[in-house]
Computed example of a mutant assay.
Amino acid sequence: MKKLFKKLLALSLLSMVILSFTGCGAKPDAAVKGFLDTVKKQDFSAAAKYMSNENDKSEFEYDSKEQEQMIKAVFSKLDYEIISTSKNGNTATVKAKITSCDLPKISAKTIADLLPTMLASAFDEKKDEKKQEEMILQSFLNSINAPDAPKTVTEVDIKLVKDKNSWLIEGNDDLLNAMTGNFAKITDTLNK
C-alpha cells in the first residue's frame, strides 16, 4: 500500500509538472519569449520553429560567413520586454519593446571612421579589395560590440496564430526591423 501511494504521489507530481510546462507553451507571450530568447542565443533553427510560415523561416539562413558574423553580433545584443498580450480566438497580438543596436548610427560611425582610409586607397593600384572588405566588417563588428554602442528601442505588435496547441509568430517587416535595429532604414536610404 505504501509503495502504491508513493507511485501515485510521484505520478501526480510528474503530471502537475508536465501540465504546468504545457500551459506555459500554450500562451502567446510564451511563444514570443521563446522566439526572442532563441534569437538572442543565435539558435536560429530553434527560433524558426516559432514561425508560422515556411517563408519566414528562410530569414535565418546566411548568404556568407560575413553576414553570419554580423547577424550573430546584432542579435546577441537584443533585449526585450513584453508589454501586453491580447487574444481573439485563434489569433493574438503581443506588444513588445525590443532593444537592439542602432544600425543606422553604427553604420554612419563605421563610414566616418573608414572614409579617410578608403579614400586614400581608392587611387592605389595595388589595393586589395578583400582586405578592404575585411577591414569594413571588423570595424562594423567592433562598433556593434563596443560597450557604448548606440541602442534603439522599438515597440512592435507581434501577430500570432494558433496552430493546434501552440502559438506561431507571423513574421513581418516591423518585427524584423525592430530586431535588427532599424536595418530597413539603411536599406531604404541606399535604395533611394
Score class of each variant (00 low, 15 high):
37 D>C: 00
41 K>T: 06
43 D>Y: 01
44 F>V: 02
46 A>I: 04
48 A>I: 09
48 A>E: 11
49 K>M: 10
49 K>D: 15
50 Y>M: 07
50 Y>R: 07
51 M>R: 04
54 E>L: 11
56 D>L: 08
57 K>P: 10
59 E>W: 15
59 E>L: 14
61 E>P: 02
61 E>C: 00
62 Y>P: 02
63 D>K: 14
63 D>A: 10
69 Q>I: 05
70 M>F: 15
70 M>I: 15
70 M>K: 10
72 K>L: 04
74 V>Q: 10
76 S>R: 02
81 E>C: 01
81 E>G: 09
83 I>M: 08
83 I>S: 09
84 S>I: 04
84 S>P: 01
86 S>I: 06
86 S>F: 00
89 G>Y: 04
89 G>V: 05
89 G>C: 04
92 A>N: 09
92 A>Y: 06
93 T>Q: 08
94 V>C: 05
94 V>S: 04
95 K>S: 14
96 A>L: 04
99 T>S: 13
101 C>R: 08
102 D>T: 00
102 D>C: 02
102 D>S: 02
103 L>N: 14
103 L>P: 05
103 L>Y: 13
105 K>S: 14
107 S>Q: 13
108 A>M: 11
108 A>S: 12
108 A>C: 02
108 A>G: 06
110 T>H: 07
110 T>S: 10
110 T>Y: 05
112 A>M: 14
115 L>K: 13
116 P>L: 11
116 P>I: 12
116 P>H: 12
117 T>D: 14
117 T>M: 11
118 M>D: 11
119 L>A: 09
119 L>N: 08
120 A>T: 13
123 F>G: 13
125 E>Y: 09
125 E>G: 15
125 E>F: 09
126 K>W: 02
129 E>Y: 07
131 K>Y: 06
132 Q>W: 02
133 E>L: 07
134 E>L: 11
134 E>V: 03
137 L>G: 07
137 L>M: 10
138 Q>V: 01
139 S>M: 08
139 S>L: 01
140 F>N: 06
141 L>P: 01
141 L>T: 05
146 A>T: 03
146 A>Q: 01
150 P>R: 07
153 V>M: 09
154 T>V: 13
156 V>I: 01
157 D>H: 00
158 I>E: 01
158 I>V: 10
160 L>S: 11
161 V>Q: 11
163 D>L: 04
164 K>E: 15
164 K>H: 12
168 L>D: 07
169 I>P: 03
